[in-house]
C-alpha cells in the first residue's frame, strides 16, 4: 500500500510542473479573458478595472469594423476550404504513387508549413514589393505593365492576395492528412474495383473519395479553426489595412487591445471568437459525421 501511495505521489510530482504551466499560461489567461470581457480596463498595470456588464459586447457588435472583420474571416475560411481541399487532394494523389524523388517533393510541399508565418509573409512582401518586386518585375519584362496592381494595398484585391499566400503556406498540412488517408485504403478494395473494370475517374470518385471522408472532415475542421484565428500572416502582410480592408477578428482584437488600449473590448472579441469557433467546429463535426454515417 505504501508503495502504491508513494508511486501516486511520484506521478503527481512529475505531472505538477506541466500542470502548473498549463494552469498559469492557459487556464488562467482564458478565465481572465472571460472576466475582462465584462470589465473596462486600459491595460496599464495599476489602473482601474471597472465592471461594465455587457457594454463591451455592445461596443463590439455596434462596431462596423467587427462586421467587416467577420465578413473577411468568412471569406478567408470559405476560400481556404475551396482552394486547399482540392489542391491538397490533388497533390496527395500525385504523391501517393511509387516513383523516384517522391520523398523530395513531399518535403518540398510541406516546407512552408514548418517555416514561421512572419518569414513567409516577409518573403511574399518582397516578392510583391511595388515596382521592384519579383512579380512586378516579371510582368514588366513580359510587357504586361498594365496588369500590375497594388497587390497588398489595393482594397479591391489585397484580401485575395493574402488568402493565396495563406493557402500556399497551409497546403502542406492538408496534403499530408490526405496522404495518410490514401495510404490507409486497403489494396484489396482498389484491386477489386480494378477487376470490376472501373476506370480511373470512377475509382477516384466511387472508391477513393468515400474512403477518405474522415481525412476531408479533419481537414475542414482544421481549416475552420485555423482561419478563424488567423492573425500573423495578415499582421505582417497588410496590418489589416488599408482602412480595415484586410482586417480579420484577430487583427481587430489586437488593435483594440494594443493600439486603442481597450482590453475589455478586446477580451469581448476573444469571447465572440471562442463561441464562434465552438459552434462552427460543432456544426462541421456533425455535418461530417452524418455524411459518413449516411455513406
Amino acid at each position: 500500500m505504501d508503495r502504491l501511495k508513494s508511486r501516486h505521489l511520484q506521478i503527481a510530482m512529475f505531472l505538477l510542473p506541466a500542470l502548473l504551466f498549463y494552469a498559469v499560461l492557459l487556464v488562467y489567461p482564458v478565465l481572465r479573458t472571460f472576466f475582462l470581457s465584462l470589465h473596462e480596463w486600459n491595460g496599464f498595470a495599476g489602473s482601474k478595472v471597472e465592471y461594465v456588464a455587457f457594454d463591451n459586447f455592445k461596443l463590439v457588435f455596434e462596431d462596423e469594423i467587427f462586421w467587416k472583420s467577420l465578413k473577411n474571416v468568412m471569406v478567408v475560411m470559405l476560400l481556404s476550404i475551396a482552394i486547399q481541399i482540392p489542391a491538397g487532394l490533388f497533390l496527395a494523389l500525385l504523391l501517393n504513387g511509387k516513383w523516384k524523388g517522391i520523398r523530395f517533393f513531399k518535403a518540398a510541399f510541406f516546407m512552408p508549413v514548418i517555416m514561421s508565418a512572419t518569414s513567409i509573409s516577409l518573403l511574399w512582401k518582397f516578392i510583391l514589393y511595388p515596382g521592384d518586386g519579383l512579380v512586378d518585375g516579371l510582368l514588366m519584362k513580359m510587357g504586361l505593365e498594365d496588369s500590375i496592381r497594388a497587390w497588398l494595398a489595393d482594397p479591391s484585391i489585397n484580401l485575395y492576395t493574402v488568402i493565396l499566400i495563406c493557402c500556399w503556406q497551409g497546403l502542406g498540412v492538408v496534403m499530408i492528412i490526405f496522404l495518410s488517408g490514401l495510404v490507409s485504403i486497403p489494396d484489396a478494395i482498389k484491386e477489386a474495383a480494378l477487376i470490376d473494370g472501373a476506370n480511373r475517374r470512377q475509382r477516384l470518385w466511387f472508391v477513393t473519395l468515400p474512403l477518405i471522408r474522415e481525412a476531408v472532415a479533419i481537414n475542414v475542421i482544421l481549416l475552420v479553426i485555423g482561419t478563424l484565428k488567423i492573425f500573423d500572416n495578415i499582421y505582417v502582410l497588410t496590418d489589416g489595412g488599408p482602412n480595415h480592408a484586410t482586417d480579420v477578428l484577430g487583427t481587430f482584437l489586437y488593435k483594440e487591445a494594443f493600439r486603442n488600449n481597450r482590453f475589455g473590448m478586446a477580451s469581448a472579441i476573444a469571447v465572440v471568437m471562442f463561441l464562434l469557433g465552438f459552434v462552427l467546429t460543432l456544426v462541421a463535426n456533425r455535418a461530417m459525421r452524418r455524411e459518413s454515417l449516411d455513406g
Binding site: 505521489l9 503527481a12 505538477l16 500542470l19 502548473l20 494552469a23
Partner: peptide, 14 residues
C-alpha cells in the same frame, strides 16, 4: 484518497 490529496497539492501549488 491519494488521488484527492495529490489533486489538493496541485491546486495549492497553483
Amino acid at each position: 484518497k491519494v488521488l484527492r490529496s495529490s489533486f489538493m497539492l496541485v491546486i495549492l501549488a497553483i
